[in-house]
Design a protein around this nucleic acid. Structure first.
Lengths: 340, 340
DNA sequence: AACACTAACTAAAACCTTTTAGTAAATCAA
DNA sequence: TTGATTTACTAAAAGGTTTTAGTTAGTGTT
């Protein structure tokens, strides 16, 4: 099973191990004939450097850890695609772990990854996460960390996400422009920027259009028990004295499930109630009705975050952290058609 | 940044490196007092063995490679979830790579993974893949390999997937039972078992119900250019002299996109044409109309495949390979309502 | 007292790479 | 011809772990 090693090549060609190593890295110290000889032999015998040995020697593993809530989430997997794309292009391996929206499991993932010797960490924290001390400690120990999608102010590092405030603002402004006036908002229960920014965007759009904010129209759902808490939220909204004529939903999961719940309750969309939400599904056109969405450049978020992390790994001394916010895109479909 | 090493502990406690190593692995050769001393010091100073060093020494990495067509595919990501679950529970790390349905890229992924020193490989080949010589060579070199979801007879190893023949048979039988007679079939262009088994299941269901097979009703689409080739296929089907009254689609992508195309062409489903297909989307209920599906136990496929692989890694001598086929589930919805 | 045996430890090699610090031979300047 | 420089190579160490092959001190047997 064993792969061929430098020593094997050296023995056959009657050279020293160091010469072979240098020939393969095209060092100026080695003559052209020797280089050619070694290169050809290595190629012919399919030599590949042992990653463990190299990693041990260099104190690097050329692998990065990624912690996400769940691989099994279309938006997340789109970001992972972007991360993978950039890392593969730069010869870094990806080790992906899932927090399953559970803070304890998130800590455990991070610990395992760190112990496994990753060169850097890409993390999108759980909605529960409020304590960033653990991450800050690793950061102080020299581990490069980049936050993506779900950001927090409690840790200072590179961060990549979309402009959630503007995305939310545009969604609500779009509803208002199309004649909707009583706009509800369903968000996830969390202290992350993502949540608060989208909420703030909602409020700002209302106030900019002279619509009074009404807290009865705003619901925060428990992500760990979404089905049930969302049904309750929607039923509460629809039994208000002054019923909403539109809903702006803040996450992918909430958007699609709200559509399901509203359909099940036999509301006509958008006649009875309009719906727009953050979502990256490529099936929005197939929905009943086609769903208006705020679309995020998921692939770009991932690849940019990876780019920032690899830069951090290779230039550890630089400490000017930046936060990159990409633009969202409003995709208008049947679920928010202008009111007749 | 550097983690504490065995040598550090040895120096502080005035012991040899080997004693410390043995104390930590609870060897009988070390006295109880010494063991306790070492264990406490290691714990207090958060010692974690260097994965590279251990990997180098043992010739193992405790990591496995996974090659899939694309992370960004809900069915794939559900399987990855299962794989991750089992591997994490058994302290193996996952290195995921994407072939993007391209055979050359698949080979490149496998090569990178092998060079990276994985202990085993989990692979779901591209639809293009017909040549398994490369994999067989690695297998002969001692690399444990398990095929999942997309199987082939050209390599002998553990395999995990669903019973595609039966899944397809049930879908078509369901259509017939509900009164549909002229049943088209859209599949992906490939030589993999998955493709042929689903095609065979379709044919068998027809013949068992005394419906003549008509090759005009069967289309194989190019997965790398699905949008266009699918549109052409559907237009051809719908312009036949004897139009189909139902379509059975063979893959997740084809199923959802067919729905989109049929909607766009303004066909009423199921009145003009019924639709059922393999798909694992959890949004089938939200579609227009709700889509009948053949659902696969994706998580179980993944975790079982991982289980088989880890077993293979830890018992390399055993060579009785098995193929596990799980059952599919028919989920009947509006798109295949019984004909009036 | 001589010997075998065990308990508790250690020194050093091995895994494979990269890199530091050299060496030997050839070339060049004076 | 001497001394300096360049070219093309090598020996050996380092990185952290596990493991082989010891060593030493102490106990038990006769």
């Amino acid at each position: 099973m064993q792969n061929i090693t430098l020593r094997d090549i050296a023995k056959v060609l009657n050279l020293s191990v160091s010469t072979v190593s240098r020939a393969l890295t095209d060092s100026y110290q080695i003559g052209d004939k020797t280089k050619k000889l070694v290169l050809e032999y290595a190629k012919a015998h399919n030599y590949v450097p042992n990653r463990m040995a190299r990693g041990l020697k260099e104190g690097k593993s050329r692998s990065i850890g990624v912690v996400v809530c769940s691989i099994d989430n279309s938006f997340v997997s789109q970001m992972l695609d972007g991360i993978d794309h950039f890392c593969t292009a730069n010869d870094y391996q990806l080790i992906i772990m899932q927090s399953k929206e559970n803070f304890e499991q998130e800590k455990s993932c991070i610990h395992l990854l760190y112990a496994g010797g990753i060169d850097g960490l890409l993390i999108s924290p759980t909605y529960q996460t409020t304590d960033f001390e653990y991450l800050k400690q690793l950061q102080n120990d020299g581990l490069p960390i980049v936050l993506f999608d779900r950001l927090s102010e409690h840790i200072d590092t590179h961060k990549v996400a979309v402009d959630n405030f503007n995305g939310a603002y545009n969604a609500v402004a779009h509803l208002i422009k199309n004649g909707y006036q009583t706009i509800a908002h369903i968000n996830s229960e969390s202290k992350l920027n993502l949540t608060t920014d989208r909420f703030e965007g909602y409020k700002k759009a209302l106030s900019d259009h002279n619509i009074a904010y009404n807290e009865d129209l705003v619901k925060f759902c428990n992500t760990n028990n979404l089905n049930e808490s969302l049904e309750i939220a929607i039923e509460q909204l629809m039994s208000l004295a002054k019923k909403p004529d539109a809903i702006f939903t803040a996450t992918d999961q909430i958007s699609t499930k709200s559509l399901a719940v509203l359909n099940q309750l036999n509301y006509k969309i958008p006649q009875d109630i309009a719906l727009i939400g953050f979502s990256n599904t490529d099936l929005a056109n197939v929905f009943n009705p086609a769903l208006s969405t705020i679309h995020q450049p998921a692939f770009e978020i991932g690849s940019l975050a990876a780019k920032q992390l690899l830069h951090l790994i290779e230039h550890k001394n630089e400490v000017i952290f930046e936060t990159i916010l990409l633009d969202t895109e409003l995709q208008s479909r049947a679920s928010t058609k202008p009111r007749a």
